[in-house]
Design a protein around this nucleic acid. Structure first.
Length: 491
RNA sequence: GGUCGGUUGGCCGAGUGGUUAGGCAGCGGUCUGCAAAACCGCGUACGGCGGUUCGAAUCCGCCACCGACCUCCA
């Protein structure tokens, strides 16, 4: 097994060689969606980032258990007493059962992640199905003395925890600073300190989602589910914990505190955080109202979009930036991504036409090594894509007779190109009308092309060009090669 | 205000103490009846000011600007 993957660990702020606790097994936990709204571009980034990690680790031969939760009990709307579960709030607005709402958006999430060719995780646990496990952790933390109960709610005692352990190791925050910088919130009389966080919240009378507990009828605090479910399925300490950078503080910091308080262990050894997506340089966010749903991208139905952008264009666009960089959205950038993606996919298909020669003019082994090296360097997908474009250029040159491959090299080159672009980056040729009725369209095209060929022979270029131009208007592009004319549907 | 990160050619976006990132767009060429596609060539970019160094866009310092987190958010 290749063993040279280096990952940037937020915990140490350094790139580190990835060494699993129990090779060949790898435990990977990623914070999943809160299913109270339609999936948007921001959901795509972590899903694709960790899909790449999942695919690469699997390819390397690791047996990966990938756990990504579904938050269906919702997080607290805020920390105030009248805080309301997000799912419950949405349900009231739409007059639906809370679980109906959660199911609907969960299905939508799956539908769009499938379209983006994101593999399903090994386990997708729901928070609502793990109330017992969460209550168990509340009890453990209370027993250890790192939490206190007040009016039916249970809060994590950060100050007390900080006396024995250190709070803020992941985000680099210092408790004293937090005291002075955290603003005062109304209705926080129950908490001893503003930075304490809820482990269990007593439900207000209007709160629909509630479960019985020794403390009150209520619901779990907003960091607890990840601790409960990662512990249950991956153990008290596992390999990699991932999520968006916005979750670094307080969410992941609190997860660490909960695990250390309850189990005495930092839950994960490697913490990975994908950066945000920006629109016109500004973060995309619910509160900012500038987020674009995936459905709007795929159909083009948003005022900021000049046209529809396909799932693979979105995936390619995201992979063209390193996961720790912000990626700024614009129609121009997507246009460039779309064209580049098509060029790569075209080359991949053209590759089948290459005929083996006696000798190779291209070093396939070195090429393959470069591709691995890119991913080994903290999943550098943009560099990998740059290499794949070099591969595309070689393919096209080989078809033009400028490069040659021996039989063995050709086979290895084909495998390498497919491995990295399809199996690992998860890119694929998107189906078009061509694939739904292939025979019919082929027949029609062959007819048109033979008429055009006759016209060309007779030097009737007006007719030949008319066919080409009008097909172009329909979205079919012709390319005259030496002995035949190729055609392709563009969008 | 505190903490962290960023500022790369027309656009997007990697990377690095001295050697071509890559894609898109543009320009010139080859090919073509003309195109398209493809291939070849071109642009010589790293926020500002100092410092370290034989040499910095890459290291250090200061400044400017932008952003993220500190409140639900991927």
């Amino acid at each position: 097994m290749r063993n040279s993957l280096i990952l940037y660990n937020t915990l140490t702020r350094k790139k580190e060689l990835f060494v699993p606790i129990q090779p060949p097994h790898v435990g990977l936990y990623v914070c999943g969606p809160t299913v109270y709204g339609d999936p948007h571009l921001g959901h795509a980034r972590p899903a694709i980032t960790f899909d790449l990690l999942f695919r690469y680790l699997t390819h390397l031969g690791y047996k990966v258990r990938y756990v990504r939760n579904i938050t269906d009990v919702g997080h607290l709307e805020n920390d105030a007493d009248e805080g309301e579960d997000k799912i419950a709030q949405k349900a009231r607005v739409e007059q639906l059962e809370p679980m109906e709402v959660a199911q609907y958006y969960c299905d939508r999430y799956h539908q769009f992640m499938d379209a983006l060719n994101v593999k399903r995780p090994s386990i997708e646990p729901r928070a609502s199905g793990h109330i017992i496990e969460q209550l168990q952790i509340v009890k453990e933390i209370l027993d250890k003395g790192f939490a206190y109960e007040k009016n039916g709610s249970v809060y994590f005692d950060v100050e007390k925890y900080n006396q024995k352990h250190k709070y803020g190791t992941l985000s680099g925050r210092v408790l004293d600073d937090l005291l002075s910088t955290t603003r005062e919130l109304e209705g926080q009389t129950e908490k001893r300190n503003s930075f304490d966080f809820a482990l269990w919240k007593k439900a207000s009378p209007t709160h629909i989602m509630r479960w019985p507990s020794p403390y009150s009828d209520g619901f779990p605090g907003w960091h607890l589910e990840c601790t409960a479910m990662s512990t249950k399925y991956l153990g008290e300490q596992f390999d990699i914990h991932g999520g968006g950078m916005d979750l670094l503080f307080p969410h992941h910091e609190c997860e660490i505190a909960q695990s250390v308080a309850a189990k005495g262990k930092t839950p994960a050894r490697y913490w990975m955080h994908n950066n945000m997506i920006t629109i016109n340089g500004q973060k995309m966010g619910k509160s900012l109202g500038n987020f674009i749903t995936l459905e709007e991208f795929f159909t083009g139905s948003h005022s900021m979009l000049t046209k529809a952008w396909s799932p693979m264009t979105i995936r390619f666009f995201i992979l063209q930036a390193h996961y720790r960089s912000t990626v700024d959205f614009s129609n121009e950038a997507l246009q460039a991504a779309e064209k580049g993606f098509n060029r790569l996919m075209d080359a991949l298909q053209q590759m089948e036409k290459i005929k083996p020669a006696s000798q190779s003019t291209f070093d396939v082994k070195e090429f393959k090594e470069k591709c691995y090296a890119a991913l080994d360097d903290d999943l550098n997908s943009p560099v990998l894509i740059a290499h794949l474009f070099e591969g595309a250029k070689i393919i096209n040159s080989a078809i033009a007779g400028k490069e040659t491959f021996s039989k063995n090299d050709l086979e290895e080159f084909r495998q390498t190109m497919h491995l990295f672009s399809e199996d690992i980056l998860g890119l694929k040729v998107e189906s078009t009308a061509e694939s739904s009725h292939p025979e019919v369209l082929d027949g029609v095209m062959n007819l048109l092309l033979s008429i055009r060929q006759q016209a060309k022979k007779a030097k009737d270029f007006a007719t030949a060009d008319k066919i080409r131009d009008e097909l172009k208007q329909l979205g079919i592009e012709l390319r005259d090669a030496k002995d035949k004319t190729e055609w392709e549907i563009k969008n």
